[in-house]
């Protein structure tokens, strides 16, 4: 088991070094647009957890390329540097050989993979049976589609200064 975990750790390092600027998609169904604007047509949809290549950045937008080669823009908050590309907080880099120059400490790489997650929430819910997560789930389902938001803005005479963002 140790050997497998070890191999995985080493693979993680190598995967990080393979791409120029690997980014991990942090948003459920992040829409990729042709230009850095919410009004630009959707050219593709990214799935959460997917790794994409970071190209240019402009304002709050990040240009990305998917493994299949599609290029488009997503809000910067939709992606984060993937595990292998994490910078250490001190800015120092592990420089033990050409292939490990990822700048992530062992603890940071481990952190990127795990943390407070679904299983922590499950434990928390067991310990706090008085809390009702049904309302939280219901709240989460209240997403307003982008097209409706545009209609809503238009009907209310809401025009951002200088056109759209």
């Amino acid at each position: 088991m140790t050997r497998h975990a070890l191999a995985a750790l080493v693979l993680l390092c190598l995967a990080g070094a393979a791409l120029a600027a690997p980014l991990r998609v942090e948003q459920k169904n992040a829409q990729m647009r042709g230009n850095p604007s919410f009004l630009s047509p959707v050219v593709g949809t990214l799935t959460q957890g997917q790794t994409v290549e970071g190209l240019n950045a402009q304002g709050d937008w990040q240009q990305v390329r998917t493994p299949s080669g599609t290029t488009g823009w997503v809000p910067r908050s939709a992606v984060i540097a993937s595990a292998g590309a994490l910078k250490s907080s001190s800015g120092a880099k592990v420089n033990t050989g050409a292939q490990v120059n990822t700048g992530a400490s062992a603890s940071e790489m481990a952190l990127a993979g795990k943390g407070f997650g679904a299983s922590t929430e499950a434990e928390f819910r067991r310990a706090n049976p008085n809390l009702d997560f049904a309302w939280v789930d219901r709240m989460e389902r209240a997403q307003v589609p982008r097209s409706e938001l545009q209609r809503f803005a238009q009907a209310g005479g809401l025009t951002p200064p200088g056109g759209t963002k």
Partner: peptide, 17 residues
């Protein structure tokens, strides 16, 4: 030095967390 970079702040909390 990298090993020492462990003082955690809210910046270390991932979007998932």
């Amino acid at each position: 030095k990298v090993a020492g970079a462990t003082a955690k702040t809210f910046h270390d909390i991932t979007p998932e967390q």
